[in-house]
């Protein structure tokens, strides 16, 4: 039963009004302004001139911007697909093992989620530094030839940044998948084992269909965090060497606040927003349809 508030029709609106006012003024209105900006050539100082869709055309044609979106796709592999693959195997192994210490394990692997990305980036810069932990390890096992400035090398900078994302995401994805797998009744696995189904087949036939909602959440969260990567790139590489690690978020910042291309920056931001909405919609639609 859902009773109407007794003090008149205005009551619900009065409760919503303060939240809506702040939300409207500092989120919805700026979102609309960003769309407006994106149709202008605007340097942030003088009055802008309307340019129609030119800023959006630039997203498709400008090599720098195309590269940025390409890098974001590469990061999706590192932030999302790799952790999902690793997380599935780890969660399947751990959820049915009779081991102690799972709560402590969960606390530890979830830790990167609560630490500021800037702090993690500082830590990983030290690991990737010329005299850092990674090169020390390589030298210790006699692989001196492989040592390099991981974040300063055109060939390795983007994967190096991506692996930081893999490290951050894998714990979250594993914890999420374990929660889903814990729901599957043990008897199903026992029956499947008796029928001679291999662990790989059990994973495919029993586990995967059951944890589809968790997979959808894991993909949504991690793909979006890959698309929105900013702090990590800002602190580790600044988009370099050259433009080899620049990403859409970093281009928004650079173009709006360093190059004075505010209209172009707004267009990149709008495209990014559309992508984030699309990922949400597509991943959840697919998960729902197959449920």
């Amino acid at each position: 039963m859902r009773g109407r508030a007794p003090r008149g029709r205005a009551t619900p609106y009065l409760f919503v009004a303060p939240a809506l006012a702040v939300y409207g003024a500092f989120l919805l209105y700026p979102l609309l302004r960003a769309v407006q900006f994106s149709f202008y050539d605007f340097d942030g100082l003088t009055v802008g001139t309307p340019v129609g869709l030119a800023n959006y055309a630039a997203v498709l044609t400008d090599t720098g911007l195309r590269a940025a979106f390409g890098h974001a796709l590469v990061l999706v592999v590192f932030f999302s697909l790799l952790p999902l693959a690793v997380g599935l195997v780890l969660a399947a192994l751990l959820v049915r093992a009779r081991v102690r210490g799972l709560p402590l394990f969960r606390t530890v692997v979830f830790l990167p989620q609560v630490i500021a990305m800037v702090v993690l980036a500082v830590a990983w810069r030290r690991i990737y530094a010329p005299d850092g932990t990674l090169n020390d390890l390589l030298r210790a096992v006699g692989l001196d030839a492989l040592t390099r400035t991981w974040l300063g090398d055109y060939a390795t900078a983007l994967p190096a940044v991506g692996l930081i994302g893999t490290w951050v995401s894998t714990g979250l994805v594993t914890v999420l998948l374990m929660a889903g797998m814990a729901r599957v009744p043990k008897e199903l696995y026992e029956a499947a084992s008796l029928d001679g189904a291999s662990p790989a087949r059990q994973l495919r036939v029993l586990t995967l269909p059951a944890i589809r909602p968790e997979i959808a959440v894991a993909l949504t969260l991690t793909i979006i965090s890959a698309l929105k990567t900013f702090d990590l790139v800002y602190v580790t590489t600044g988009g370099g060497p050259g433009t080899s690690t620049t990403v859409p978020s970093y281009e928004v910042y650079r173009r709006a606040f360093e190059l004075g291309e505010v209209g172009a920056a707004a267009a990149v931001g709008v495209v990014l927003t559309v992508l984030v909405f699309a990922v949400n919609l597509v991943v959840n639609r697919v998960a729902d349809r197959q449920r």
Binding site: R33, K228, F230, S249, G269, L272, T273
Partner: peptide, 10 residues
């Protein structure tokens, strides 16, 4: 869902 990047400019 709205990313910070898009609102921070305006």
């Amino acid at each position: 869902m709205v990313p910070t990047e898009v609102v921070v400019v305006p």
